[in-house]
């Protein structure tokens, strides 16, 4: 009995050690790759200049979906760091992230994204399930790179918005 149970346990362990890399659920999903114009973006920054940015959620709103399908998109959450980076002229980016339900999720993305030199400020908003980024002025970060970094953190990006759309001011 003992030998057979040990055999079963060894088999389980061997299966675990030899298992293929994780098959995360990568069902097809829409990616929005809209690029906000620089002029519009800097206009948006000035719109926020006289606001109180003492709490992260002061400026968290959901903008109407331009497609008119009834969904709402998260817009940039303004923390002190986010606001300071915007003031310096960095590009704002908001990425909707699937499965963000706890502080460990937020911690993982903060750790992964804050290592990138292109990123001046990062904040994960659990209320809007969005990753908020502001780039270093002049820096670029592709949607594909953002998606790959999210995967490294263990999550999946559903949509990326930039510039005026990230700020909720797109017409």
């Amino acid at each position: 009995m003992m030998n057979s149970s040990r055999t079963v346990a060894c088999a389980l362990l061997a299966a675990l050690l030899s298992a293929a890399p994780v098959a995360q659920n990568h069902d097809h999903h829409d990616h929005k790759h809209e690029q906000g114009g620089a002029d519009a973006m800097h206009q948006d920054h000035s719109d926020h200049a006289d606001h109180d940015h003492s709490t992260p959620s002061d400026h968290t709103t959901e903008a109407s979906n331009p497609t008119g399908n009834g969904d709402a998109h998260a817009v940039l959450t303004h923390t002190d760091d986010i606001h300071a980076a915007l003031e310096k002229g960095g590009e704002p980016i908001v990425a909707d992230v699937m499965g963000v339900v706890c502080d460990f999720c937020a911690l993982a993305m903060n750790k992964i994204f804050s290592k990138r030199e292109e990123i001046a400020a990062v904040y994960v908003d659990l209320d809007t399930k969005a990753l908020n980024l502001v780039l270093v002025p002049g820096a670029t970060l592709s949607d594909e790179t953002i998606e790959e970094l999210a995967v490294q953190a263990g999550y999946r990006v559903a949509a990326v918005r930039r510039g005026a759309q990230a700020l909720g001011n797109a017409s």
């Binding site: 675990l16 995360q24 999720c105 559903a158």
Partner: peptide, 24 residues
């Protein structure tokens, strides 16, 4: 002690995970 994330299910408002763990 290795742990394998065999599957993660993502949703806008939820997350599900299946892990295999073991040790020798």
């Amino acid at each position: 002690h290795p742990t394998l994330l065999a599957k993660r299910w993502f949703g806008k408002d939820y997350q599900g995970n299946l892990y295999f763990h073991g040790g020798i």
